[in-house]
Design a binder for these strands. Structure first.
Lengths: 241, 241
DNA sequence: AGGCGATGTGTACAATCGTCTACCGCTACG
DNA sequence: CGTAGCGGTAGACGATTGTACACATCGCCT
């Protein structure tokens, strides 16, 4: 009998989400679940006691914060999705100065030449981002095809949002005569999804990183070329012999 | 105490894998695991007793056939992968009579026009196939990003094989001046992977099936256009104004 | 006929699981 | 100052799990 006696929470005075060590129990549990899900097993198949142990808390404490595991999963996803979405948007905006405005481009070849630079930068940026959020990414992709319909649906909308963001950003940059909005959204969906898998490879095979980056770039460029070529097929006739 | 007494196996005389009811215990267990994995949880997180119960067998019987769950998973994957690979190849070969030989095509536009027909047929074919093997597909994709490194690796080589098959088939049909072999393999990899996800959507959203099929077709065609356009970029210059 | 290996069954046990009930201490608020 | 509620702990319950051991049948080989 340790007669430990509860401690309540000794919240330091800090007024606004102190980003440091003294996390709340809820955050501890979420972090523990993420950690376990990334290294051990699937989020939905975690044990209540297991998570609590990892978090250094009593099993029962789990009940105070979450009603079910889907509940916990949703909280984790929500928290990370916000950060990811915002982070990606910010970084995507960052390098896009006037140098990359494409409004005045008329020549499709010139457009693609510039697109190449943009894609290169964007891919590097995504890969950098996922490297910093490795656990979240691995778990996210895992649960995207996992067993819990709730989590699957949540992650699907996360990915949809990311694709929508990307489509918006692209449409702001590319002159409308080169693309059609529907196609851009379709492409963005596929690109987001494929980038997720390229990212996974990127994380899991550090020795092939350079190659994976190049593959991802080539894939996206190929889609762009394809979208453009489908809009102006007569151009290809020039190559007929 | 039911004093049930074991029964051994009462194999009917049938000489060659009778495709019907009296499956062997091993097959029962594999089928049970697949069923559970498709509807309930991940393959690797299944319970030994659970599988045995579903198979209508004693828990201990599991030990007779498999040493671990990865073991079972590998067996399931191996069995299904063989069927899938062979089935896809056969069906891909089936509709490709002389009518679809492209050797004599010189005009890229003509090539793409024919490619459109081929893609249409191929997509329909894959979707038909996955509809017939729904469980296997769902589980396969799930484990592709699951927690067991062993199963992940196995599934990855399955997908690689499928991509290699597809690349081979494509290279047999398309005249070499239009594509380069490396690019074809890259495209095949992406197409296989994306088709897996289109398939998943296709299975999960029966009411959107038509639309999903069209999206998948458009995606593949876009890649093909892109691959071709990247090989002959000057052609696009024709559209400059 | 006899033995052997593969297949299947039943019982048992310790560990772990999710959940319930009861208790403690801190903090905010009236 | 009192008290309600939140965050945390302890212990116990019945159920389920993985595994071990001991048996019972069958087919096949010698």
């Amino acid at each position: 009998m340790k007669k430990n006696s509860g401690s309540g929470r000794a919240r330091p005075k800090a007024g606004r989400t102190p980003p440091e060590a003294p996390r709340s129990g809820r955050q501890k549990l979420m972090a523990a679940a993420l950690q376990l899900a990334a290294t051990t097993r699937s989020l939905a198949s975690l044990g209540l006691r297991e998570v609590a142990r990892q978090a250094g808390l009593n099993p029962n404490t789990f009940y105070r914060h979450f009603k079910s595991f889907d509940d916990l999963g949703l909280a984790v996803i929500e928290a990370l999705a916000g950060e990811l979405r915002q982070g990606l948007r910010e970084r995507r905006r960052r390098p896009m100065g006037d140098a990359l405005r494409l409004d005045d481009v008329r020549d499709p070849l010139e457009l693609m030449r510039r697109a190449e630079a943009i894609v290169e930068e964007s891919v590097a940026l995504v890969l950098e981002f996922v490297t910093e959020h490795q656990q979240a990414y691995v778990v996210g992709i895992r649960e995207l095809h996992g067993t819990s319909p709730v989590l699957r649906a949540a992650l699907r909308t996360v990915f949809d949002d990311l694709a929508r963001d990307m489509a918006e950003d692209v449409l702001e940059i590319v002159p409308p005569q080169f693309v059609d909005a529907d196609a851009v959204h379709g492409i963005a969906t596929v690109v987001i999804r494929e980038m997720a898998f390229y990212s996974l490879d990127y994380l899991e095979q550090p020795q092939r990183r350079e190659q994976i980056r190049i593959e991802a770039q080539r894939f996206i460029l190929m889609l762009l070329w394809g979208a453009m070529a489908m809009r102006m097929p007569q151009a290809l006739r020039a190559l007929a012999r």
